[in-house]
Design a protein around this nucleic acid. Structure first.
Length: 848
DNA sequence: ATAGGGTTAG
């Protein structure tokens, strides 16, 4: 490389030597001297060659030793020797030795120090040793800045991350008449890449072609890399394809370019082409290929990558090792990730972080925290990535204590300036139901990226703060952060969670008209939200539209649409969707099978529920729970109890949901003793704290047997404030047992608790109806109207209206029979007017 | 000249 002409006269002082006397004596003396001089000169030459080859072979100390020998022999040392030594220091990155040589140069005076060759070499040396202060100072003192010193300084700026300065240097050297060569250009292109200055990069590309550097593999590989970093993969590919001679780096740059732009399949294709060409992969190749495999969840490819790494006996450094660990954790093979981790000799923060985040993502929070402790005992500090994982662990387990500790750590270590960390903090507070703290942290941030906005948006959406969510949605656009699909999905979810179905549908059509493609999650949000708000039929329609839009449903959309079938309820649609699942070869996973059992049970076909249940070869707790609950719903308490016993025989520990189902089975069947025994077992044998729901079952069990006082006592002694559901079940019992006074008392509370729950109004109306207090019944209906309560096919007004009809006026003897029929007929037409298709039971009730 | 990790929506 640096092949500056070496001074032809080894000793610079020799040229100043002039003989003064011309006598014969003098001339023999002169001849002797000249001979001696000749000897010294050849000795000098041999020293020089010796030093030079020692430096090239990396024997720096020996060559410095020779330098000392020469100084001792009183040789005048020329620039080329210092040059060789400094070059040796550059190879070895031997800063200290180089500084010693620098000192010797200075000691020898200006003549050497001001030599262009030596000066340039010093700049190159300090630059390559990443010593910018000295390198830049020496560079500025240079009288002549040649292409070598420019290259060194541009390269240094590039390495230090001062990309702008590197580009300014590139411009300045040209202004000074120095033409950038194939050593400067890769650095310039790297700077363009890291600044994503595609325009500048294209200009440099033009210069490359004009000056004929296109044939240099270093320059062309850098062009591929630059285009890749700027995201212009077509141009990267063009340069790559035009390369006559491609080395590994060129191939690697192409692969890396694809991976970094999410074109993982393309990266894999290039990798295979490279294999076909017989190019030996390097660690960079395999690491990038593994990234692509990890991103695609490509199990076979990734395993091949690991095998290639072993077969090519690439050593397992931090980066290759991390890539392998990353691949195994992304595809869920944690044991393999652990194995690679244990085989790595030197682990850094990234390696540890990978395993920690992998544990968190697979819900193994205990293991993750354990790894954190081990990492600390290895004297490695947590960085922002570690903290993101810890905060995420706190979020998934709703562990506010751990979350706060994590937040405090971030404050102490100044990690909260990292947007990703702040997003994790906000998400943690949101998931721990501290929405105010989440807002507070959000407001304290100055730099907000899309994910940060989306995190708070999602937090508001989840709890149904649709107004706040919408405000945030507009505010982010005001702050010139354009929303993405996730933002839209959150706004839609916010409306649905707040019961604003029309607004949600509105947002859905708005996003489409603005060119956003709804994705699987958008559709699932809508289907699930509609199903949960009692719009089962619409949910099914959306499910159908989703097929038309060419989106393949996921597990969540299938379970949601099955929930929609239970909401209508429609066995017909339920069966159709079951057929769809089978036709589209969805495997009968536990959540899908569970939803199917639930759907069949709630749509009235316990036999089909049983069929699905028995189809599952390996049964897990959720499906047992669904089946027990199915039996409960169908009043088959004996079967429910048998299944409950069977499940325990299988060694499966019942959970809180199991007890809810089995208690509700007892409650429906009026099995008071069994129910109370199970309730006692749950507390004493299974060490569970009964939830409100469990109390609810027991309350309804006792109260339906007519023991309303006992039920009320239980409500008053339980460790919760009674919720609407539990008061509602007592209210229902009041209706059945004609306890109007207690009913009215409970209703007052209920209307305060849940002013929009029509069920409560209906229950009280029914109690009034049972007592023949028709004025109150009609008052209740008006009250509902005034409060704007919705009526839909699921609204118990219609259903209980029907029941009421049978209950009170069934024999036609009641004096108000006619009015009741009129009211029911009106309800039915009102329902049809609102666009609902009446269910068979509505009409049946009316006819009876 | 090329290389590894963390955050948001059902």
């Amino acid at each position: 490389m640096a092949s500056l002409p070496i001074t032809t006269t080894p000793n610079p002082h020799a040229s100043h030597f002039k003989p003064r006397k011309s006598s014969k004596f003098a001339s023999t003396r002169l001849a002797k001297l000249q001979e001696k001089d000749e000897n010294r000169r050849s000795l000098y030459k041999s020293y020089f060659h010796h030093i030079s080859s020692l430096c090239k072979d990396g024997h720096l100390q020996e060559s410095v030793h020779l330098l000392s020998e020469m100084e001792f022999e009183d040789f005048q040392i020329g620039p080329e020797i210092y040059g060789e030594l400094l070059q040796g220091c550059v190879y070895e990155r031997a800063l200290h030795t180089g500084q010693q040589i620098h000192a010797r140069i200075l000691k020898n005076g200006d003549f050497f120090a001001k030599n262009e060759y030596v000066e340039t070499k010093l700049v190159v040396f300090y630059a390559k040793c990443d010593f910018p202060e000295v390198a830049v100072r020496l560079f500025h003192r240079l009288r002549v800045r040649n292409v070598f010193s420019w290259a060194a300084i541009v390269g240094l700026q590039c390495r230090m991350g001062f990309s702008e300065d590197a580009l300014l240097g590139f411009i300045e050297m040209q202004e000074n008449g120095v033409f950038p060569d194939n050593f400067v250009l890769p650095n310039v292109l790297k700077a363009c890449g890291s600044l994503q200055l595609i325009g500048f990069g294209k200009g440099v590309h033009g210069y490359v072609l004009k000056m004929g550097f296109g044939a240099c593999v270093f320059v062309s590989s850098s062009l591929v890399d630059m285009y890749g970093k700027c995201g212009v993969l077509e141009d990267a590919r063009k340069v790559f394809d035009s390369m006559i001679e491609k080395n590994v780096v060129a191939w690697n740059s192409m692969i890396v370019g694809y991976v970094q732009n999410g074109l993982n399949q393309e990266a894999i294709d290039v990798f295979y082409d490279m294999r076909v060409e017989g190019i030996e992969p390097t660690r960079v190749t395999v690491a990038s290929f593994l990234s692509a495999s990890a991103n695609l969840d490509a199990l076979i490819e990734g395993k091949q990558g690991h095998a290639i790494a072993i077969l090519s006996s690439l050593d397992l450094d931090n980066i290759l090792g991390s890539s392998i660990i990353n691949f195994y954790s992304k595809v869920g093979l944690i044991e393999d990730a652990e194995l690679v981790f244990s085989r790595m000799l030197e682990k850094d923060v990234v390696t540890w972080n990978l395993l920690i985040s992998s544990y968190v993502q697979h819900q193994q929070v205990g293991k993750a925290l354990n790894m954190c402790h081990l990492m600390r005992s290895e004297n490695l500090r947590f960085d922002s990535v570690t903290l993101s994982s810890i905060l995420s662990a706190s979020a998934v387990t709703s562990n506010i204590k751990l979350g706060k500790e994590g937040h405090c750590y971030c404050i102490r270590r100044n990690l909260e300036s990292d947007v990703v960390v702040v997003s994790s903090v906000i998400d943690m507070y949101a998931k721990c139901e501290r929405i105010d703290d989440a807002t507070k942290v959000f407001n304290s941030t100055t730099e907000r990226d899309l994910v940060l906005w989306n995190t708070l948006l999602a937090a508001y959406a989840k709890v149904g703060l649709s107004g706040e969510a919408l405000k945030l949605f507009y505010q982010m656009q005001f702050d010139s952060v354009p929303p993405n699909v996730i933002s839209w999905n959150s706004v839609i979810l916010g409306f649905l969670r707040n019961g604003q179905v029309n607004e949600a549908k509105d947002m859905f059509s708005q996003m489409q008209s603005l060119g956003f493609q709804p994705n699987l999650i958008t559709w699932t949000t809508l289907i699930s939200g509609l199903a949960q708000s009692g719009f089962g039929y619409e949910a099914i329609l959306f499910f159908q539209q989703m097929q038309e839009a060419g989106i393949r449903p996921g597990i969540a959309s299938i379970t949601s649409v099955l929930l929609a079938c239970t909401d209508i309820p429609s066995l017909w649609y339920g069966r159709a969707i079951h057929g769809f699942i089978t036709r589209h070869e969805f495997c009968l996973s536990v959540p899908v099978a569970t939803s199917l059992v639930d759907m069949y049970a709630k749509c009235g076909s316990i036999d089909e529920a049983k069929k699905v249940f028995h189809m599952m070869s390996s049964k897990e707790l959720p499906i047992y729970n669904a089946m027990i609950s199915a039996y409960a719903l169908h009043g088959q308490a004996v079967e429910a109890l048998a299944l409950f016993k069977h499940l325990q025989k299988e060694g499966i520990e019942p959970d809180s949901i199991t007890f809810t189902s089995i208690l509700s089975a007892c409650s429906h069947a009026g099995l008071v003793n069994e129910g109370l025994n199970l309730f006692a077992d749950m507390v004493s044998k299974h060490n569970m704290n009964p939830s409100m729901e469990h109390y609810g079952c027991v309350v309804s069990l006792i109260s339906r047997c007519g023991n309303l006082d006992e039920a009320l006592r239980l409500i008053l002694t339980m460790p919760f404030q009674p919720d609407a559901l539990i008061l509602g079940s007592l209210l229902t019992a009041c209706r059945e047992h004609h306890e109007i006074e207690l009913g009215e008392y409970l209703s007052k509370h209920l209307f305060k608790l849940e002013p929009s729950n029509s069920g409560n109004y209906v229950a009280l109306s029914n109690a009034y109806a049972a007592a023949g207090r028709w004025v109150e019944v009609s008052n209740m209906r008006d009250l509902m109207k005034v409060r704007g309560l919705r009526k839909n096919p699921g609204c118990s007004w219609i259903q209980t209206g029907g029941k009421l009809n049978v209950f009170v006026a069934g024999d036609g003897s009641h004096p108000k029979t006619k009015e009741i029929y009129a009211m029911l007929a009106m309800l039915l037409s009102e329902m049809q007017f609102m666009g609902y298709v009446p269910m068979a039971s509505n009409e049946e009730n009316l006819c009876s």
